[in-house]
Amino acid sequence: MPSRTSVTRPRPALGNPFQILLLACSFALAGYAGVRLFAGDWRAVALWVAGAALLHDLVLLPLYTVADRAVLRGLGAAGRREWTPYVRVPAALSGLLLLVWFPLITGMTAGRYRSATGLSPDGFLARWLLISAVLFGGSALLLALRGRERGRPRRAAKRRPPAVH
């Protein structure tokens, strides 16, 4: 039977035809807008679109992964793996704010900002540092409080009878 012979012949899999049609439709619309997006300096725009994805996937993501693992390894070596969230959370939040607001925080647009808005560009770095101080400080306080809570009964039982004080 002809149909049986065609099954044995190797050919590239097509996949879901609905998915192919949907994606073709998507590409057509993206192409319609893309022609207009690339109408100006198309090389630079293509660099930005592809660069944004590459910069994120190959630089930003590995960078914060490596930083996170360094924290884990360092705390693990010190036998304090359970402290990880106390470092990770404030560092992630502070880093997030820097990532979003770095043009203002670093002052790279300070001149234009001052002349356009009439506002001082000087406060952003200070406010970011203060927010970071609150985040890390709050985390340290929490760690200290939890440490005392956990440590108290154990230490009391181990070291001295409660009657001593």
Binding site: S26, L29, A33, R36, G40, V45, W48, T109
Partner: peptide
């Protein structure tokens, strides 16, 4: 970047953000 007046992107913000949105939306919908 635009709200921070950091106009480093390649061209005027309006067409880049508008046409870029349609390219993104096409892929997003699929």
């Amino acid at each position: 970047l635009n709200i921070q007046l950091d106009y480093v992107f390649p061209g005027s913000f309006y067409p880049l953000h508008f046409y870029g949105a349609w390219v993104f939306f096409a892929a997003f919908t699929a």
